[in-house]
Amino acid sequence: MSNFSTTQDHESTGISNQKLAMWLFLSSEVVFFAALISIYLFYKRLFALGDLTPEGLFDIPFTSVTSFVLLMSSLTMVLSHNYYEIKDYEKSKIWIFATAFLGTVFVSGQIYEYTEFIQSGLTISSSIFGTAFFFVTGIHGLHVVIGVVLLIATGSQMGISNSNRIYSLSIESLALYWHCIDIVWIVIFTAVYLIP
């Protein structure tokens, strides 16, 4: 057996380095999105599109459904992690792909919403409001797309390797990342769509 497989990472904190790094990354994500949402709220009222106001543009029932889909993807992700912890790898794999599917549905909904807005005359360059809106929701959407790619990659590799420790850490990190995307959307949905 090679030395690499038996050598443990130096973990003076009692927490795995990967987990520690992941939480630091998530903390930086919170700061990043707090800045983005602040920018949106700051420029929300700066638009010059006649009757096109945020209230008139947003389709709240539709966005509520996509928000619900993302919330449910958090459930499927936590179920995948739960089944991995109890070593039911088949169920864990199924729920990981279910999460990827729900993430894809969310992104599809966002693309549909963007199409509607662009047809109404709101583009990224039409007003400061448009720039701020597309920037905040677009950066979040990009995070979801990256998450979906990572979910599919991890789910596809789960049956190939038997290295449980590596996958346990990967799935935990992936789950943390996915839940972070969800909590960011919880704030965006309230701050961008619901608060008048």
Binding site: L20, L26, S27, V31, A34, A35
Partner: peptide, 17 residues
């Protein structure tokens, strides 16, 4: 320690708000 790390993100967000 992890709780403190996550809380750090909120503390750093306060200036923006």
């Amino acid at each position: 320690l992890l709780k403190l790390f996550f809380l750090l993100g909120f503390v750093l967000s306060i200036p923006f708000i």
